[in-house]
Design a binder for these strands. Structure first.
Length: 572
RNA sequence: CGGGAUGUAGCGCAGUUGGUAGCGUGCCACGUUCGGGACGUGGAGGUCGGGCGUUCGAGUCGCCUCAUCCCGACCA
């Protein structure tokens, strides 16, 4: 590619409001341009990166016995009614009518399409297992996209679906996919990418993992144990419950606490620890709008994912202004209306000498013994894990880090084959619903993830496996015929060898060329200059290490091949 | 969907009490430069997000609307 013909514009400053590093770099280099909120055009360099990443994914999927297919972007309502998701999913699914007034949707994932594709075509257990995958555009009307390519509404995703006779077979294949994912992320150059246990959400199913790039800009919180390797998304993270003993023989009593209603105020006022308070967190049922109260130890937060899973319902935060029936700020576990759903976190089980709201304005209860003063049928684990709490597996201290989800894998079970009526005959001649797994990787997010951890103050540092061009040729003084001739001769030789080369054939100063080359971050730069040519020398610069190698003109190609090989080996 | 902010040249920004719009950068031409974002001279580029209103007159004031960004809710 001749840089003079590339549609791009480099920028010294990032557009205002752009502050995540991958977004800054992609914008400044002109690799992407925003069209609307969460919708971007990828310029040629970003698209070339995407293609290289896709090809690595293809290679790993094919090695995992996958076959590439392509599902439609637009699907009829009926397909999504069969699985039940037409009504389950909210406005993040784009719906519209075609000219015949038929309800259609834009695909945000393709479980339905994959089941529709194989139903009736696959009819025997002998044809299982198999895996089909595609790399295609998805549209999800996210309520809030952000961070450049990290969270967008329209994006390219690889999604794969496997079908099995038994759960055991799915599990075995699931771990093959886990390995394939590990390979993909290593090969595209991601270093701090880990897999964590995750929530299955609306996908259904039991076991799921997310592949997370550790970065402070990540949107997900991850709970990690350095000792035993326990890694989990906060949504499903568990920990060992610490034992706190506060013996109390004093009778329960009510004390005035005035305007002190928040945990901070109440503990300061009564001079007690947060761990000795029973905190009430109020939600409402999304459909019936009835209150739900969760009681949890004062120093802990409610994990809303766990709450939703226990309730099997969608919830909303409680709007205190809209309801006077609860003594907001003084809510306690005693004498609550029977209409209210009440849940108790395990962190308050057996606790004595606690402080709780009195369900009465300006009053709290003290000397509250949970077992003595309350009849709780069940305590549940519904609290968010805090940094410093102990690992459930090995009791080591847990830490919390942020991550970007680059990929995920799910053991789906028979949710879709059952709801959509896909059956095969087993060896006994009985109809059965195959067991499914599904596996996704966001391609654009992978690009952003690579940049999140591979850059310096001058710009991107692209791994050789995904860089749009492997070699960036900078002819200094392209108006010098000798330089021009040599530079283009190298360019042509590299092209002949199928080594992706970019030549900066613009008539501009060395400083501009170097600055742009640094920003672009191609793994290797070749500098051809009049001074160098006088000494029969070409300069090779390795972007990652800034290492400079001077080589004789006739040795350049051999030396380049060696360097490229070495850079590739680092990713194996 | 709540809370906050911003919309002026491709990008980054300034624009005073209301008087017909500017700076930096980028772009074009010519000349001098030329290995780390060169310099000089001359240019092109704006219905000031849009609409309605107040006014002799609106980038500036009022109302409405749209878009974008940030925080939260949300999120396969």
């Amino acid at each position: 590619m001749k840089l003079s013909k590339l549609v791009f514009e480099t920028q010294k400053e990032a557009p205002s409001g752009v502050n995540i590093i991958s977004h800054v770099l992609l914008s400044r280099a002109g690799f992407i341009k925003q069209v609307a909120n969460g919708i971007y055009t990828l310029g040629a360099p970003a698209q070339k990166m995407a293609l290289k990443i896709e090809n690595i994914i293809r290679d790993e999927m094919n090695k995992a016995d996958g076959q590439e297919v392509k599902f439609p972007v637009v699907m009829p309502r009926e397909l999504w009614e069969m699985s039940g998701r037409y009504f389950q999913i909210g406005s993040e699914m784009v719906r519209f009518k075609d000219r015949a007034d038929h309800d259609m949707v834009l695909g945000m994932t393709h479980e339905e399409a994959s089941v529709q594709f194989v139903t009736n075509t696959i009819s025997s257990y002998k044809q299982l297992p198999f895996m089909i995958y595609q790399i295609q555009t998805k549209f999800r009307d996210e309520p809030r996209s952000r961070g450049g390519l990290i969270r967008v509404r329209e994006f390219t995703m690889k999604d794969a679906y496997s079908f099995h006779n038994t759960l055991e077979d799915l599990e075995e294949y699931y771990y093959r996919q886990h390995q394939a994912y590990t390979n993909v992320f290593r090969r595209i150059g991601l270093k701090n990418c880990i897999s964590v246990k995750s929530d299955t959400g609306m996908m259904g199913g039991q076991i799921a993992h997310e592949f997370m790039l550790l970065t402070p800009d990540g949107e997900d919180e991850l709970v990690i144990c350095d000792k035993c390797g326990y890694k989990s998304n906060m949504e499903v993270a568990e920990c060992e419950l610490e034992q706190i003993n506060t013996k109390n023989d004093l009778p329960l009593s009510e004390v005035p606490t005035g305007e002190h209603t928040s945990i901070d105020d109440v503990t300061a006022f009564l001079k007690i620890q947060k761990t000795n308070v029973i905190k009430a967190v109020v939600y409402v049922d999304k459909d019936e709008k009835k209150p739900i109260i969760v009681f949890v130890r004062g120093d802990l937060e409610v994990n809303e994912s766990k709450l939703k899973k226990i309730l099997r319902k969608e919830i909303l935060p409680f709007d205190a202004a809209g309801d006077a029936s609860l003594a907001f700020g003084n809510i306690g576990p005693m004498n609550l209306s029977k209409d209210i759903t009440v849940l108790f976190d395990r962190s308050i089980e057996n606790r004595e000498g606690m402080v709780a709201g009195a369900n009465k304005a300006k009053h709290h209860l003290i000397n509250f013994n949970v077992n003595r003063d309350l009849n709780v049928k069940e305590f549940v684990d519904i609290a968010k894990v805090k940094a410093g709490q102990k690992c459930k597996v090995c009791s080591h201290e847990l830490k919390i880090e942020n991550g970007i989800e680059v990929g995920n894998i799910f053991q789906l079970g028979d949710k879709y084959t059952k709801s959509m009526g896909m059956t095969v005959l087993n060896e006994k001649g009985e109809m059965m619903n195959p067991i499914m797994g599904c596996y996704g990787i966001g391609v654009g997010r992978a690009i952003a993830s690579i940049l999140q951890e591979s850059f310096d103050e001058k710009g991107m540092i692209l791994p050789v496996s995904v860089a749009p061009w492997t070699v960036h040729i900078c002819p200094i003084r392209i108006d010098d015929e000798k330089v021009k001739e040599k530079a283009f001769s190298l360019y042509n030789q590299l092209n002949a060898l199928s080594i992706d080369a970019l030549i900066d054939d613009r008539e501009t100063s060395a400083g501009v060329k170097f600055a742009d080359a640094d920003l672009f971050g191609m793994p290797i730069r070749l500098v051809v200059s009049p001074k160098g040519l006088d000494k029969n020398e070409i300069e090779i610069v390795i972007r990652k290490t800034r290492e400079v190698v001077l080589v004789k003109e006739d040795e350049v190609i051999e030396k380049l091949k060696n360097i490229i090989l070495k850079l590739q080996e680092e990713l194996n």
